[in-house]
Design a protein around this nucleic acid. Structure first.
Lengths: 220, 220
DNA sequence: TCATTAAATACATACTAATGGTATGTATAG
DNA sequence: CTATACATACCATTAGTATGTATTTAATGA
């Protein structure tokens, strides 16, 4: 076959297949050939025409999947009529978190830290760069500036809360027996956050309950 | 060469080389051949005679390195003359933590979550299984039983504190600019722990300062 | 506006080097 | 003599590359 009129469809197919496989089998557990095999009839040449390495495919796949979530959050936080403290609560309200969870649920990452080590590293780094530095810290600083938040160590609080929210509250890479334990984690996190000046809001428990349901509805 | 009179020396050499390489270059970044090349004259046959897979070498290397630390901690916590609260403080006192840090400092893991993703996964899993379930939760429960600790969510507190201590306070896989920021993390962690009933002790800041020094003395 | 052509693009095919692991051979210790 | 501690030779899989080919698109000219 020669060239395709709509190469972006090919790219989309590659990224769809890659995302699913990387989630289910991990980075090292997924070969380029595995991806190619899901691209009815296409070959490795197509893949390496559009992407220069496995690494690039991995990043592109997740960037693409995350893009709508990121955009949504940007829009939510962009509104100028909220104080910092309000925005903080918004960040952990169902309407902000659930779409993200639905994405993760669709992606079905393997509940095995070793198999998912690459994903785990991504989430770990993202907790600092994207969550903490990217939006949580700015919101906290906004809150401090407008007087709605009193936090002595904004950066540290942002990092700790992000890390706990992403790698502990969400049971992405380790199974969690039941809803009760997840709610306990949420409660615990909220208490710890409050101790450093961050009120995550009363909705956190509701949010968590919804997360659990979304998670399990997806067949976990 | 035929067989060696002291095969355990061979095993030790393999594990030493493996540990260093896995830390510096990561799991996937280290090939069996890399290890073999450090075993003056020996070949892959030797390696695969003593270990059945790369995975097994990885685990054995870290188990061996951690063994004295684990033993030491067991001994410390075994003493029956301390209350739970005391033992908890002991866990975060310099004499308990510094040996562990010295080990990590010798191992020099790459400060790059992706390169170190496998190590990160190990630490992540260890934070639950070894740290939280292994010794922190038992100590907390002991403290609750003897009345020295009041903690409403022991398991959750143990997990959260372990995770933060291992993956955040210790800057294993991400560089940390200066001592001040590390102390700020310690302070923040102590505050958060206190909020769920865990008093890590006044020594935590001292411990952290020492950790920083050990870390940097090792050429970070 | 439309045919012609040149160039860029979208793939397919064939290949390479490196890798984890295995099968098997051989010398030595016990 | 047998089990063990290696060495040697080999294999299948993998990420990635080099190159070939068909088709789309852009440029050209009338």
């Amino acid at each position: 076959m020669g060239r395709n009129k709509y190469p972006e469809e090919t790219v989309a197919k590659i990224l769809d297949a890659a995302l699913e496989l990387f989630c289910a089998q991990g980075y090292e557990g997924t070969s380029i050939q595995d991806i190619v095999d899901r691209l009815d009839g296409m070959t490795k040449g197509a893949v390496y025409h559009h992407f220069k390495s496995k690494e690039e495919i991995f990043n592109a796949a997740f960037d693409r999947a995350m893009a709508p979530i990121v955009e949504r959050r940007r829009a939510t936080l962009g509104a100028g009529n909220m104080m910092g403290a309000q925005k903080l609560k918004r960040l952990y309200a169902p309407e902000s978190v659930v779409p993200q969870i639905e994405l993760w649920a669709r992606m079905h990452p393997a509940a095995d830290p070793v198999k998912s080590s690459r994903l785990l590293a991504m989430q770990y780094q993202g907790s600092f760069d994207e969550s903490a530095d990217g939006y949580l810290l700015p919101v906290i600083e906004e809150g401090i500036a407008d007087g709605s938040i009193a936090c002595a160590c904004p950066r540290e609080a942002a990092e700790a809360v992000s890390l706990l929210a992403n790698l502990w509250l969400l049971p992405l890479f380790r199974p969690l027996e039941n809803k009760g334990r997840m709610l306990a984690r949420a409660q615990c996190l909220a208490q710890m956050a409050a101790a450093v000046g961050l009120d995550l809001g009363n909705e956190v428990l509701q949010t968590t309950a919804q997360i659990w349901d979304v998670w399990n509805r997806a067949g976990w």
